[in-house]
Nucleic acid binder design. Structure first.
Lengths: 160, 160
DNA sequence: GCATGATAGTGAGGCGACTACATAGTGAGG
DNA sequence: CCTCACTATGTAGTCGCCTCACTATCATGC
């Protein structure tokens, strides 16, 4: 179809970037849509996920973890609490703070999502030959490193 | 650090998927932020981009191209028109419709964005050994094909 | 020629994620 | 005890998205 060896770097890079961008779009859609089926949004799910890793946390910490303002966390927690997935517990040492805590239902949900993510991994990579997979992961790591190096730090908050 | 050969498929897939997801997040942020610097949003930019490929289009067509409702397009066009990037021209044959048209400023902006995208491609892939790059692209294509096959394919993002 | 039904765009109204600003309550050092 | 820092939240505004209702117009079908 195309003579890849004769393609200029510019062409190759553009095509590759287009594919990466397509991947971004597709995965975003997939996530958003499958979460919506459970009444969740990406942001709320991220909060749930963070909570699972860190355990009960003050909203302030969650704000930093998600890279949003404290006010945004208030809203997200409101929604999750209304859905019965988290509760606000008093902080034992600081009466200003609340400890956002996963409920049983919340924990179960996160575990379900984890299993689904594993399933997606199997679907995406299961049929790939090992060398192909390894090549992909290796290149992906390079790209990720470059991206990190470019300064668009994953440490999101500081909007210049 | 880790003995990759001994890693279970489950582990390998999970790690790979985590990296992919990280890429998604990072690129989203990068785009959003760099566009924000120009007073643009991702959605408006997508509209601009579509307009460049298709030429002056009725809003109805744009709605379908972006995969959103017609009402959403009205809002996006409002914003872009206010910024002087597009205009609403009368449709020569259908007085119900308007032809959304790129202005000179709009066209220039899109061209600038194109150049920047090329630059990003160079930054991401320029330092990669050829075999590494090819491996990455090959794996990426597989993933994309699988994703398309999974049905979450909708044709929104025709990136090129 | 004209009623009938589709179609293009928009107003109204809502939701979710995000922001900045202001404020009450609390913590902690001088 | 006073002041300053800090947690969380009310208020208000932006943006992208949606649905529903409505107008103007097109395109049939008689």
């Amino acid at each position: 179809m195309f003579d890849e060896d004769a393609m200029s770097d510019r062409e190759r890079f553009n095509r590759a970037l287009d594919q990466v961008l397509e991947l971004v779009v597709l995965l975003n859609q997939d996530m958003t849509q499958s979460l919506a089926g459970r009444g969740l949004t990406v942001s709320r799910t991220t909060l749930l996920w963070t909570l699972r890793r860190t355990g009960p946390s003050p909203q302030r910490n969650l704000a930093e973890a998600l890279g949003v303002t404290a006010r945004t966390i208030t809203g997200l927690v409101d929604g999750l609490a209304a859905a019965g997935l988290v509760t606000r517990e008093p902080h034992p040492a600081d009466r200003r703070a609340t400890l956002v805590t996963l409920t049983g239902a919340g924990t179960e949900l996160v575990e379900t999502l984890e299993r689904e993510q594993e399933e997606l991994g199997r679907q995406l990579f299961g049929a790939m030959p090992r060398t192909r997979f390894d090549g992909f992961v290796a290149g992906l790591s390079d790209v990720l490193n470059t991206l990190h190096g470019l300064g668009l730090a994953h440490r999101l908050g500081e909007t210049s």
